[in-house]
Simulated assay, not measured.
Amino acid sequence: QSKEYAEPEWYADIWLVVIWLVYFALYLRTLARRHEPHIYVANWYYMAFILVVAMLHIVNNLALPVSLRVAESFPIWSGVQDAMVQWWYGHNAVAFFLTAGFLGMLYYFLPVRSGRPIWSYRLSILSFWGIVFFYIWVGSHHLHYTALPYWVQTLGMTFSVMLLVPSWASAGNAIATLNGAWHKVRDDATLRFMFVAAVFYGLSTFEGSFMAIRPVNSLSHYTDWTVAHVHSGTLGWVAMIVFGAIYTLVPQLSGREAMAWPRAVEWHFWLAVGGTLVYIISMWNAGITQGLMWRTYDQHGALSYSFLQSVEAMAPYYLLRALGGAMILTGAVICALNCRATMRATPMTAEGADRPLGVQPAE
């Protein structure tokens, strides 16, 4: 459909809705069969993730098929309304696909791995409702300096800044949970993945709120600074909590006390952190360089640099970007091989295999 983040045609959109409804039914059925009457806040995030992504997908992809024989359709939205709905969808896909679901993972796996209860359960609920309410309004900050009405742009900018409060509440809640368990963070690379994820979540949400401010956006928009911001979230936050969850789950599901190659987990951690830093710092520099070159004028009021010159200036930054990406990829391959070795290894005794998730053997 030539829409960013929403390429599938109408027949694929319908099939995606069917798949998602089946997923939702499985999730509800799992909740219904629980023995614990209380629903922990991690499940609140999973529920929001499923429901809101479904709503976003349906509304953004409302279209009129040309015919049943032709795989082509026209969106019911047009012009600036289409752009506004698209970014309402696009930014909230990040909010509820790449944030809510992974916050659910953080709120579950971090206390399990650290052996500490969440620092403030009440704060986790308050931050949940703050994120759910504020995030849904911020998509228009992608459309600063466009034909979108000025008040809608300002609304998106304002809610983006306000979003910093519940976002940092979640990041701070996670870090405060580790009080009394910092020795485990030092010694356990899996827990370190989760700690770094919480730190990057706090950093990337601050950066997002900062970039939504109109004067900052005038420099950052359409540049690789946006690429840096997105990847500080996906590589630094989402990927780190995923790796932490994998290294917690795989030994338990394989009936083992730990990963088959513990040193490989350490190697993976440093490759992932180092690669992410190289990647996003190079893209930060690239984006700011682009923004400054595009707005530099000479004494006659003409642009000082051509667009081609700004592209050529990116060469060293893109080389560093490739290096950072290679480091991250190498770590992911090590993780996959380590998981394979762990699942193929001889399991421990039945007594150890029955140990609840996250409970470590006695010294």
Rank of each mutant, 00 (worst) to 15 (best):
S220C: 08
Y201M: 07
N285M: 09
R113V: 14
F49W: 15
V41I: 10
G208M: 07
N60K: 11
Y222C: 10
S2W: 07
L26M: 14
W20P: 13
L106D: 03
G287E: 00
V250R: 02
F200G: 05
T99S: 11
V52F: 09
L21A: 06
W294L: 07
W87V: 06
V227G: 04
A341H: 15
T248I: 05
I19T: 07
A245H: 00
I213Q: 12
V227N: 06
Q309A: 15
V112P: 03
I280S: 00
L64C: 07
Y305K: 05
A212W: 00
A313L: 01
W168R: 05
N92L: 15
L323C: 04
T205E: 04
A345F: 07
G301H: 10
V161W: 08
A326H: 08
N60V: 12
G90V: 14
L164Y: 08
P316Y: 05
W270N: 07
P262R: 03
L68Q: 15
R192V: 12
R192L: 09
A326E: 13
L271V: 09
L253H: 08
L26G: 09
A258L: 15
V250I: 08
W88D: 01
R214P: 08
D188R: 10
I288G: 12
L203F: 05
N285E: 12
T99L: 07
A260D: 07
W10L: 05
S2H: 06
V152N: 13
V242L: 13
L56V: 09
V199H: 02
G255N: 03
Q299F: 11
A345E: 06
W20G: 07
G202P: 04
I241S: 00
